[in-house]
Amino acid sequence: MELFLQTLLNGLLMAGVYALVATGLALSLGVVGIVNFAHGEFLMLGAYLSYLLFALWGLDPLLSLGLAFAAAFAVGGLTYYGLIRPVLKAPELNQMLLTFGLSVILQNLALLLFGADTRVVAPPYQAATLTLGPFFLGAVPFGAFLLSAGLLLLLQAFFTRSRLGLAMRAVAQNRLAPGLLGIEAEGVYLLAFGLAAALAGAAGVMLSVMLYASPTVGFLFTLKSFAIVALAGLGNLKGVFPAALVLALAEALVSTYVPGGGGWVEAVFFLVLFLALVGRSRRAL
């Protein structure tokens, strides 16, 4: 029983970070309508920023969080202006190739600048542990979970309380109507894309503490984020966290209870996704 609860706890903590990365993806997909293959590269940006600030000035990654958020927002905004806006009306596949090209550029620029080496930071709390009775909670994963939850709640409030947020949701639900209602779609797109990148940047800082910074750190998470966004329903922002939770729990349960499960985690993750997608498409009829 203890092991079971601990496993659930492990899954829950992981779901936080997954949801943070996936929410950004869902934003750019739902609001702007862009499948962004370069989402993971914004995450990488945050991770490297955190590494550099730590390595050069010993800056605590917690302090880098805000900076990475802002920097990734700026890069996301620039990307929107320079690259995304010209192809807003282009076929979906063209947009995909564009963002794929961008991802190749950013990943290899990082490779040129930093090499393929894995880089790590060392804040004092990195391996700190909280014990709750018989349960163990890593302070960093727990903190990352709280931060993710906080950011997502803020976002939720933004969407339900503020005019701009409501406008964004309107755009997400219907691409034509906002224009009729006099909502400036341009600005909404820019904000959404920047925000998506900023969330990834913040997640990148967290991952630099939990894992590492490297040119490919974003790849695995983008892949899983796509899965989560698809499970939630493309563009459905509210569904992201439950979807992340389902997949993270499936992963945690398999790797805890199936002998040799570590090697099956990926397969289970995608099997769950596959069945869910197929199941939903059947029910829809």
Binding site: L3, Q6, T7, N10, L13, M14, F136, G138, P141, L207, M210, L211, Y212, T216, V217, L220, E251, A252, S255, T256, P259, G260, G261, G262, G263, V265, E266
Partner: peptide, 19 residues
């Protein structure tokens, strides 16, 4: 126990190793 490199998810397996 096998794992996927780079995934960074060792908590479940390490939890099991505790016993």
């Amino acid at each position: 126990e096998p794992f996927k490199t780079g995934s960074g998810q060792f908590t479940p397996v390490l939890t099991r190793f505790k016993a």
